[in-house]
Structure formats: C-alpha cells, structure tokens
C-alpha cells in the first residue's frame, strides 16, 4: 500500500425530509493514495456530490470518519477545519454561478489568498495572482475583466486558479467540465492533468460522464442510491465490470464510432427513492439477476480480486465468498 492521503470509513450523510430520512451517502468507505485520482461516477441523485462535500465537511457527516493525512477531520473543531481547508479545495461544476459577477478576474483569484492571510503584501499578492493566471492559461490582459465578459472555459480556469491559490494537496472536482463544449472540455482536462503532475495534487473527480472519468482517473468508484457498489482500477473496471449496474452503465455510453459497437444492456425502470431505503440490494428492482437473497439482505462491499471491490450477492456467490 502506498502513501495514503485520504481514508474514508463508513461515511454516512442523511438528510431529514418531510417523508423520512434521505440516505444521500450510506456507509461509504475507500482510501485514496497521494498523487492519484479517484473518479466517482453515478447518475443524478446517487450521492456522489454529497460524498465530495461531506469529505470536505461542507456538510457535517451523520456518522463515519474521514482521515486526511492520518488525522480524523470529522472530530476537529471548526477553527482547525478552517486552517485545514487550505489543503482541501473544491472546483465547482458551473462556472457561471460559482463566481461573483461583481469581482474582476484578479479580485476573484486574490480573494481566497487574502481571506486566508497567506500573503499580506499587496504587490506580492498581485504577483501571485498573475502567476496563477499564467499557470491556468489565462492571458494577463484579462486581469481586469468581469466573469460575464468571459466564456465558460475561461471562467472554469478562474475556478481552478482560485482552488490552486491556497497551495492545496487535495481537490474535489465536482463535474468540472460538464458545462463545457467538447473542444473546451479537452483543454480544461489537459490543464487539470498538468497541474496535478506539477503540484503533486490528489483529486476526487466527480462526474456522470464515463468516458471522461475513464480517461482521467486511476481508480473509479461507482455509486448507486447512496451506496458504493463497485470500485476498481479504471482499466480493470472498464475491462471487467462485475456489478450488473456497472455493466449496464458502461454499455449505455454512446460510443463515437460506427464499427464494433458493443451490445447494449438496457436496464428497466428508474432509480427508486433514497428515502428510508430497506436493508436490501438497492438495485434489486431493476436487476435482471435478482434473486431472493437480493430482496432480503443488503450486499456488502467485498474485495473479489486485488483492488476490485463489488457489493453484489451474485458476484460474491460466484467468487466463492458468499455469506
């Protein structure tokens, strides 16, 4: 095992709703090594964004532990957390609503440096802003422009510069390219890869776009209705997805080629409600392999081959590790 930066143990985040407890994140555990990227994928409402936000304690976890460099950050005070936030940053999906429309590019990038008191001297701070703009590929002539004058790609570069301003070790990227056109998306993905290499950053990359996550991540975790149902090295997951949901999800990707198109597994129905889920497999009602045990017991996440974890009764039974 390499140098672990982040370890998440039995993380839960429930929200109270008028109809009952909404299990947004339900007993999620994983580890992430320094300098690596974990992709979290799943469809709307599967809890992937909440997982990212809860790890940063932007949402208080209902229970569970999050170890950042060996320290359980769910136990530390708000004040200590504020200091630690410099090392853990977030890049948002929507570069249109995540920037203050009344701040110029330089003010937006300067703001976090100023608030954290990282650089006191004004001129030095400005030099840092220019350096950051350079790093993320924003031309210096844009220093006094406002967000509305810029396109989505450039705005997302501001978001990245703001995150980098604190010299973080770890960044949660929540759908950072989903709002962008493909030609711009590729520019931003390449930029994020470059800065990861240069600064030794560790990423959690949250997305619904499976071809992007495959390209970008070392490991991929698949979530379904608050549960982590499969996790494996990216290559392995695409080569041999084991959970029936992962198989359907991967086969649903529209592949941009006209020859050798794989057979598609169409899953029936839609995601059920995450409110007060029964302790059974949450995918059971849509699963073609569903058996009695699936509707009576919740499958646990089990390592079925090195580094490949699956939560499925069928897979566990086949691998001779059934309960």
């Amino acid at each position: 095992m390499g140098d672990v930066l982040l370890e998440v143990k039995n993380l839960k985040k429930y929200f109270k709703t008028p109809r009952g407890m909404l299990h947004a994140v339900d007993d999620v555990s994983f580890t992430l090594e320094r300098g690596k990227t974990l992709g979290i994928v799943g469809e709307s409402g599967c809890g992937k964004s909440t997982t990212g936000r809860t790890i940063l304690r932007l949402e208080e976890p209902t229970s569970g532990e999050v170890f950042f460099e060996g320290r359980d950050i769910t136990k530390i005070s708000k004040h200590e957390m504020r200091d630690l936030r410099k090392e853990m940053q977030l890049i948002f999906q929507d570069p249109f609503s995540s920037l203050d429309p009344r701040m110029t590019v330089s003010q937006a990038i300067e703001e976090p440096i100023k608030l954290a008191g990282l650089i006191k001297d004004k001129n030095e701070r400005f030099r840092r802003v220019l350096h950051l703009m350079d790093t993320v590929g924003l031309a210096q002539r844009l220093v006094n422009t406002y967000p509305h004058e810029l396109d989505g790609g450039r705005r997302q570069r501001i978001g990245i510069a703001r995150a980098l301003a604190m010299n973080p070790k770890f960044i949660v990227c929540d759908e950072p390219v989903s709002a962008l056109d493909v030609s711009i998306q590729a520019q931003i993905l390449n930029l994020m890869k470059e800065i990861q290499k240069e600064y030794g950053l560790t990423y959690i990359f949250i997305t619904h776009d499976l071809s992007v996550v495959n390209h970008f991540s070392d490991d991929i975790a698949v979530m379904y209705l608050g549960r982590l149902i499969e996790k494996a090295p990216a290559e392995r997951l695409f080569e041999k997805p084991m959970h029936p949901y992962t198989q359907a999800l991967l086969s649903a990707i529209p592949v941009p080629r006209i020859h050798n198109r794989g057979e598609r597994i169409l899953i029936k129905g839609e995601i059920t409600s995450p409110i007060n889920p029964k302790p059974v497999c949450r995918f059971a009602n849509r699963c073609e392999y569903c058996t009695e045990v699936c509707t009576s017991q919740e499958p646990q996440l089990i390592e079925v081959e090195p580094q490949h974890f699956v939560a499925c009764h069928k897979v566990n039974a086949e691998m001779g590790q059934g309960q």
């Binding site: 030609s183 590729a186 993905l189 390449n190 499976l210 071809s211 495959n214 941009p256």
Partner: peptide, 13 residues
C-alpha cells in the same frame, strides 16, 4: 473526445 478503449491516449483539444 476521450478514447474509451485507450485511457492513456492523449486529448488533443
């Protein structure tokens, strides 16, 4: 576009 069959392939924007 990322190549789904070759995750090492470089994106050329």
């Amino acid at each position: 576009l990322p190549d789904i069959d070759n995750r090492k392939s470089e994106l050329k924007p």
